[in-house]
Amino acid sequence: MIYFLCLVLLCVGIYGVLRKRNIIRMILGLIIAEHAINLLFVLIGYRLNGRAPILSPDGPILQMVDPLPQALVLTAIVIGLATTALLVALAMRLHGKYGTYDVARIRELKG
């Protein structure tokens, strides 16, 4: 059931990418979809009543959560920020050239 809520979040993001006219809003939708996928990875690696995957000198810790999805997502978060920065740079360049963020108007002005 919790997976389902996570996929609802993904759907909201995809809907934003598909149906918005404002470029900034499309970028927001992409970021939301990215958050949902990251969350899905970590949810799959979660163990009920688990502990964080950090050893302590006091003794062995049983019942750790899966560290592998966390490592993959840690990389994906920083890459997501970099992709966002590149998209924002392109959007600002488009705004500098056409004076609007509206996709439909940019298409009209292009010719």
Binding site: L43, A52, I54, V65, Q70, V73, L74, L81, T84
Partner: peptide, 18 residues
């Protein structure tokens, strides 16, 4: 809540920057 403190720190900082 999901016991991933590394991700929580990174996500907070990255979100501020974005």
């Amino acid at each position: 809540v999901l016991k991933a403190p590394d991700l929580a720190i990174t996500q907070l900082a990255v979100e501020i920057l974005s």
